[in-house]
Design a protein around this nucleic acid. Sequence first.
DNA 1: ATGCCCCCGTCCCGGGGA
Length: 256
Amino acid sequence: MRIASWNVNSMKARLGHVIDYCKAGHTDVILAQELKLTDENFPYDAFKEIGWNVAVHGQKTYNGVAILSPLPIENVEIGLDGDDEDEQARFIQATIKDIHVASIYLPNGNPCPGPKFDYKLQWMDRLDKVASKLLETEKAVVLGGDYNVIPQAIDCYDENAWQGDALYHSESRSKFHRLLHKGYTDAFRAIHPEGAFYSFWDYQAGAWQKNNGIRIDHLLLSPEAADRLQNAGIDKMPRGLEKASDHTPIWCDIRD
DNA sequence: ATGCCCCCGTCCCGGGGA
């Protein structure tokens, strides 16, 4: 089963690209982020027409996450545990076949320091607790999404350009690495241990044309999922389309 | 140098993104 993650930067603006991607048979699951629309405004009919199921956790203007698949999407849960006051739509989880999947839109955290950075770090601590509980289930788990974390220097075009940024801050990176240390596998790095590869290119300053990107979208696998990992990659094609999202899909193949 | 671009909506400017 192929599982992709894609920050679409507005489901309304990107609907054509997303539907085309579904119809092309590139993947069995899309974990989508930054829908930027409410549940009521989600384009359910467009997915119904192509035979895809959807599970949506929307929000007006900002955030919003979804799970999309032609396979049945079961046991859907919205929201991230640990803060009842938090109304930002950044987490949705469900079961597809025997795999537990989550679509994650981790807070950006800029400017840092500041309250937005504090929120990012608190959110990562909450994610850590949820991820730990999922490990205890000893099931195949795939936590995919826009983590807004550059894990290592090799994951950005210019390390110096990201000094002081919330995406590359040592606290952001150490909390990301804590997930790896407790047993999660970065699917892309498991298959491609070396080399500079990116999942995001800024709209500004010709970043795409110059390949000035960063790798901030990740698929983290529990040991039971990692044991079944066959392949992983980044599909740069959608980033080159007209009216593209600034992120491109990443994917992994988990053996049945 | 947080600007360059793109998205949204209290819609022609400003907030947020990264």
